[in-house]
Each structure stands twice: as structure tokens, then as C-alpha cells.
């Protein structure tokens, strides 16, 4: 039981996809301008991650090893298409804000990475826990980066202005600010990890 639980919790801190595995940085850098974007991206990626993990884990004995990557991509692309169509139907504004990065979840290296490194070797139950944990870790990391960037770069949080008269530092809304924030957070993660271990 404890081992099963750790499949879930490892994605949040110990093997956090963004800060430790350093996967999926492209959408992280691109969409982490506002917290709303981050939550939307995180949920979308979590759904794809979970569903793809389940299907791939179920099909692991059928998929021939030599063509496994194309097979994974087909499975992942199916779920990304579902996410994209659902997002267009129910939340067109978010879809516009995330733009090309929704279809690009297909090539998000977290999803393919978990399929290749975990789901194709694991039971369905463990694949579900892994998908949920990784998705949650990715979402939390995104929200953290988004919150810092939105507050410093636009002076708001969830589109609410917090401090009156605060002159936002525009660089944090730009790509250079994203690299800066992620770099500092990765450094902080390493410091905390080394202190513990």
C-alpha cells in the first residue's frame, strides 16, 4: 500500500516533472504568464497523461516494441484531440490564450516520457497513480511559476490586482522572465533537496 502511494506522491516533489525531471519545459515557458493559463494547461496535460497511461498500460503486451513510439503517439494524439475539442466547446477564451500549446501536448515530453519509462512496464493501477501524480506535480509547478510571473510581471493574481501603485516589472511577462523564474526555482529545489539528503 505504501509503495502504491509513493507512485502517486513521487511526481509532486521527488520526481517533479518540471523541477527535477526537467520535462515539458516548452509549454511551461510559453503559457506560464497568468495563473488561469497555468491551471488550464495543467488540467489538460493531466487528463492526457492519465488517459494515455491507462491505455498504454493496457496495451503493453500488444504493442510491438519496434513500433512502440508511433503507437504511443497515436494514443496520446487521440486524447489531445479530445481535450482540444472540449476546450474549444466549453472554454474558447482559454483555448485562445493557450493557442498552439494545446495541440502541442502531443509532443509534450512528460506524456511520452511517462509512457515510455513507466506505463509500458507497469500495471494499470500503478499507471493511473503515476499519471495522476505526475499531472498534479506538473500542474502545481505551473501554478507556482505562473503565480510568480503574473504577480511580478502584471501586478495581478488570477486577474485581480493586488497592490495599488505597484509598477509591474514587465520582464517577468516576457520569455526571458520565464527562463529566469524557472531557473531560480530549479536552483531552489536543488538546494532543498541537497539539504534533506
Amino acid at each position: 500500500m505504501k509503495k502504491l502511494l509513493s507512485e502517486f506522491t513521487k511526481g509532486i516533489v521527488k520526481e517533479n516533472p518540471t523541477f527535477v525531471l526537467m520535462l515539458g519545459l516548452c509549454p511551461t515557458l510559453a503559457v506560464s504568464v497568468t495563473v488561469i493559463n497555468g491551471i488550464g494547461m495543467g488540467i489538460a496535460a493531466t487528463f492526457v497523461l492519465l488517459s494515455a497511461n491507462i491505455i498504454i498500460s493496457l496495451l503493453k503486451n500488444i504493442i510491438p516494441a519496434r513500433v512502440r513510439i508511433p503507437c504511443f503517439i497515436v494514443v496520446i494524439a487521440t486524447f489531445v484531440t479530445i481535450v482540444e475539442m472540449a476546450m474549444k466547446a466549453y472554454s474558447p477564451a482559454l483555448n485562445r490564450a493557450l493557442g498552439i500549446y494545446v495541440p502541442l501536448i502531443v509532443v509534450n515530453c512528460i506524456v511520452l516520457g511517462r509512457a515510455e519509462a513507466f506505463a509500458q512496464k507497469a500495471s494499470v493501477g500503478r499507471a493511473i497513480l503515476d499519471g495522476l501524480g505526475m499531472g498534479l506535480g506538473f500542474t502545481l509547478a505551473l501554478i507556482l511559476i505562473c503565480a510568480i510571473r503574473e504577480f511580478l510581471g502584471a501586478g495581478t493574481l488570477m486577474n485581480y490586482s493586488l497592490i495599488k501603485g505597484f509598477e509591474p516589472a514587465r520582464v517577468f511577462g516576457m520569455p526571458s522572465g520565464a527562463l529566469l523564474v524557472i531557473g531560480l526555482l530549479v536552483g531552489l529545489f536543488n538546494v532543498l533537496k541537497n539539504r534533506k539528503g
Partner: peptide, 10 residues
């Protein structure tokens, strides 16, 4: 450079 990128007007 940081200040120029953040507060170009000032």
C-alpha cells in the same frame, strides 16, 4: 538591462 526591460518608460 533589467530595469530597461521592466520599466522602459521610467
Amino acid at each position: 538591462a533589467f530595469l530597461m526591460a521592466c520599466w522602459p518608460k521610467l
